[in-house]
Design a protein around this nucleic acid. Structure first.
Ligand SMILES: [Mn+2]
Ligand SMILES: [Mn+2]
Ligand SMILES: [Mn+2]
Ligand SMILES: [Mn+2]
Lengths: 219, 219
DNA sequence: ACAAATTTTTAGTTTTGTCTAAATATTTTA
DNA sequence: TAAAATATTTAGACAAAACTAAAAATTTGT
C-alpha cells in the first residue's frame, strides 16, 4: 500500500466513525483536500484491491480488510503520538503532523516494541483510544461538555477538535486531560458556560464546550 | 525532496566516501539497483535543484548543498538505528531496513529530541560515526583487522560490511564491537587469521578480517 | 587510428496520483 | 414532473519515477 492509499483508507474510516452513513465522493475529497475526480480514481483502485465497497454514484465504505488496515494505521499514528509526548517531550499540539509521517513506517515488530516501550497505552495524548494489535477498537462513549446538565461534575478525558489552535487555547487556559470540572452556570443566550476547573472559575463558549469530551463523575 | 531523491543523494555520498573519485552512471545505477537510464534522468533533476554537479558523460558529484543534505539523511538514519537498538531492543542486524524508512521523516525538532533522548551518541550500532547537527562529520581513520601485523592488539570498533548475514555471523562467533583482539598467527596461503578474542581463540578468513574495523591498542 | 566493446543518453511507455474541463447522473425545487 | 442545481464520473494532461529499446558517445584493443 502506498502512503496515499493509506491516507484515503484512514479518511474513510474517520468519516464513517464521525457518524456519516453514506460517504460521498465530495465529502472525501474535502477531507483529503483534493478534487472529487481524484477521489473517484482512487476509489476504483481501492475497490480493485478489496479495501472498499464502491459502486458509482453510491458512495464508499470500508470492507473488513479496509477496516483492519485503517485500524492498524490509526494504531501506529496514536502510538507514535504517545511516544513523541512521553519520550521526546513534545507538546500535544505538535505531534499530529509528525505522526502523519510516522504512521506509514512499515514494520510490525517496530510498532509492537514501541507499544511495549510506552507500556501499552490505551489512549493517545488527545484522549483518543489506541486500537489493539489485533484490531480491537474500543469506541469511547464519552459525552461532550456542552451536553452535561448544570451542576454536574466531570473529568476531562478528550478533545474532539485536535487542531493545534484549539489545543494551544486549552493550554493557555490551563485545561488539560484529567482535570476535574463542574458546571456552575449556562448562559441561555449563547450557551456559554461558567465552569469550575481545578478550583478556578472559567467562562467558556459553547464552541469550546462542544469540543471537549468528558466523563461524568459522582460527587 | 522526495524519498527517491534523498536515496540518490545518499548513494552518491557513500560512493564518494568509499573512495571512488568519478561516480559513473553505471556505478550509481548498480548501487541504487535501478537502470542507468533512470539515473541519467534523476541526475538531470538533481542538477537542476543544485544538489549535484553533473555534465553528460562526465560522472556526478555532490555540491556543498548536496553534501549537507546527504549528511543530514545519514545523521537521521544512524540516530534511528541507535534508537532501535538502545530503546527498542532490536539487534544490529535488524535495524538498517527500518532506518531506511525512518531516515525520510521530516522534522528537525524530532531528530534533535531523539539525539537528546539517546544522549548524543557519536556512533551507530555498526560503529559508523553519526554526523553532527551542523554537518560535522568525523571520518574514522580506523584500520581493517586484515591490515594489522601479527602480534598486535586492537579493539574492534566497526564493521565495513553491515549486511545482516555478516552481522549474524559475527554474533554466532561472539564477535562484538568493543571486543579486544590479538592477532596470533596469519596463514600465508589464504591470509586467514588465528586471533585471540576475549580470552577465546578463533580462526577467521581473510574475508572476515577485511570487513572488521579495529583500533590498535598498546599492551 | 579505427573497429569493437562498453557506457551513457535519448525516446517512448508505464504506473501512481494529481489536475481541469466536459459530460452525465442525481437531487432539489418550483 | 420538468428545469435547475448539485454531485459524480469521464476524458485528457501532467509530473515523478521507473522501464525497454535504440542511438550516440566514449573507451579499449589491436
Ligand atoms: Mn493525530
Ligand atoms: Mn491524536
Ligand atoms: Mn544502516
Ligand atoms: Mn549503521
Amino acid at each position: 500500500m502506498t502512503h496515499s492509499e493509506e491516507n484515503y483508507i484512514k479518511a474513510i474510516f474517520h468519516l464513517a466513525n464521525a457518524g456519516i452513513e453514506v460517504i460521498s465522493t465530495n465529502a472525501l475529497a474535502e477531507k483529503m483536500e483534493t478534487k472529487p475526480s481524484s477521489v473517484t480514481d482512487m476509489m476504483r483502485r481501492l475497490s480493485e484491491k478489496g479495501l472498499v465497497h464502491y459502486k458509482k454514484y453510491q458512495g464508499v465504505s470500508l470492507t473488513s480488510l479496509g477496516t483492519i488496515t485503517a485500524l492498524s494505521i490509526i494504531r501506529k499514528h496514536r502510538l507514535w503520538e504517545v511516544f513523541l509526548v512521553e519520550k521526546l517531550g513534545f507538546t500535544w499540539d505538535e505531534v499530529h503532523e509528525i505522526a502523519e509521517q510516522l504512521e506509514h513506517i512499515k514494520s510490525e515488530k517496530l510498532i509492537d516494541k514501541l507499544d511495549e516501550l510506552l507500556n501499552f497505552p490505551k489512549f493517545d495524548p488527545h484522549g483518543d483510544p489506541i486500537p489493539g494489535k489485533n484490531g480491537e477498537f474500543m469506541e469511547h462513549d464519552n459525552q461532550l461538555l456542552s451536553q452535561l446538565p448544570i451542576g454536574s461534575a466531570a473529568l476531562c478525558v478528550g478533545v474532539k477538535d485536535s487542531s493545534a489552535v484549539f489545543l494551544r487555547f486549552l493550554d493557555k487556559n490551563s485545561i488539560a486531560l484529567g482535570n476535574k470540572m463542574k458546571i456552575l452556570e449556562k448562559e441561555e443566550f449563547d450557551n456559554s458556560l461558567r465552569i469550575l476547573i481545578d478550583e478556578k472559575e472559567l467562562h467558556i463558549s459553547q464552541q469550546i464546550a462542544s469540543n471537549l469530551y468528558v466523563k461524568k463523575i459522582e460527587l
